[in-house]
C-alpha cells in the first residue's frame, strides 16, 4: 500500500515553483487506481516525486510504502523496494542490450533480497516466459534498449519490464499515449494479466479508452497539485462526457 500524506513538492532548482500542494492519497493493495486531470495538473510530477527523482524537492509531507517512510530512499532503492514506474516517454539508451539490461535489473532486485544473481543462461528461460506473456517478439531481446523502437514497442517493453521485475506497486504514466488500437489492447491485456490481490496498479491517463479495457477500482482527479475528487469508474465516464470545467469551478470557484 502506498500512502501519500500532505505532500508539497517543487522543482529543486526553483523552490518557489510549488507543483504538488498538500496532496494526499492512498493506493490500497490489490486495487487498480486511475488518476486523471487536466494538462499541467501535476500528474507526471507526482510520479517522479514518488520515484525519488532528484529534480524535485519534497518540502513537506510523507510518502509511506507499506507503512515505511521512503523519503531517505534513493531512486534505485525505491525500485528494489518494489516500486515501478512505466514511463510516458521511455528513454532510449543506445548501445545497451535489452536482454542484458533486464538481467541486470532483475539481479539488482535479487541482490536487494539477498538472493544469488542469475547468469544470462539462467535468466533467459524466465525472460522468454515473460515475453510470451506480453506477446513480445524475441527479436527485441537483441535490440538496444528502446533505441529505434516505435511508440507501441516502447510501451510494450515497459510492460515486459514490469512483468520481469514483478513490483508490488506499478505506476503507469500515460502508458496509453501514442498507441494504436491494437497496441492499446495488447498493453491493456498485459495490465489485466498483471493485476492481482497482492499488487497495486496506478494508471495515469487522459482517456476513458484505456479504462474501457482496464476497469479501475477507483478514479481520482488531480488538479492544481492536489486531489480534488475521488470516486468509482463512473467518475471517469462523467469526465469523458463533460470535461473538467464543472469540477474545477466547483473546487476553485469561477477563477479556477
Amino acid at each position: 500500500m502506498l500512502e501519500i500524506k500532505n505532500i508539497c513538492a517543487s522543482l529543486a532548482e526553483n523552490e518557489q515553483t510549488q507543483i504538488l500542494k498538500d496532496l494526499s492519497i492512498t493506493f490500497e493493495t490489490g486495487k487498480v487506481h486511475a488518476i486523471m486531470g487536466p494538462n499541467g495538473s501535476g500528474k507526471s510530477t507526482l510520479t517522479k516525486v514518488v520515484a525519488g527523482h532528484e529534480d524535485y524537492d519534497v518540502t513537506s509531507g510523507q510518502i509511506l510504502l507499506d507503512g515505511v517512510d521512503i523519503e531517505e530512499r534513493n531512486i534505485e532503492e525505491r525500485a528494489t523496494d518494489g516500486l515501478f514506474i512505466g514511463f510516458q516517454y521511455p528513454v532510449e539508451v543506445p548501445g545497451v542490450n535489452n536482454a542484458e539490461f533486464l538481467r541486470l535489473a532483475y539481479n539488482a532486485k535479487r541482490a536487494a533480497q539477498d538472493q544469488e544473481e542469475l547468469s544470462m543462461d539462467d535468466f533467459m528461460p524466465l525472460l522468454r516466459e515473460k515475453m510470451a506473456e506480453v506477446k513480445m517478439d524475441e527479436v527485441f531481446l537483441d535490440r538496444e534498449l528502446n533505441s529505434g523502437f516505435s511508440g507501441g514497442q516502447k510501451k510494450r517493453n515497459e510492460i515486459l519490464q514490469m512483468f520481469v521485475l514483478e513490483p508490488a506497486l506499478a505506476i503507469l504514466d500515460e502508458t496509453d499515449s501514442g498507441l494504436d488500437i491494437d497496441a492499446l489492447r495488447i498493453v491493456a491485456e498485459g495490465i489485466n494479466t498483471y493485476r492481482s490481490p497482492e499488487r497495486t496498479i496506478v494508471l495515469i491517463t487522459h482517456y476513458q479508452r484505456l479504462l474501457d479495457l482496464v476497469q479501475p477500482d477507483a478514479v481520482h482527479v488531480l488538479a492544481k497539485g492536489r486531489i480534488i475528487a475521488s470516486g468509482g469508474p463512473e467518475l471517469a465516464l462523467k469526465l469523458e462526457e463533460s470535461g473538467y470545467d464543472d469540477l474545477l469551478a466547483e473546487t476553485f470557484g469561477t477563477e479556477g
Binding site: H53, A105, A108
Partner: peptide, 22 residues
C-alpha cells in the same frame, strides 16, 4: 535516471551508458 528507476545503482547505470555510447 531511467536505468536507476529499474534498480541499477548509479555506478552500474554509468557503466552501461558509457559502454553503450560507443
Amino acid at each position: 535516471w531511467y536505468l536507476r528507476s529499474r534498480g541499477l545503482s548509479l555506478k552500474q547505470a554509468r557503466q552501461l551508458v558509457i559502454g553503450g555510447f560507443v
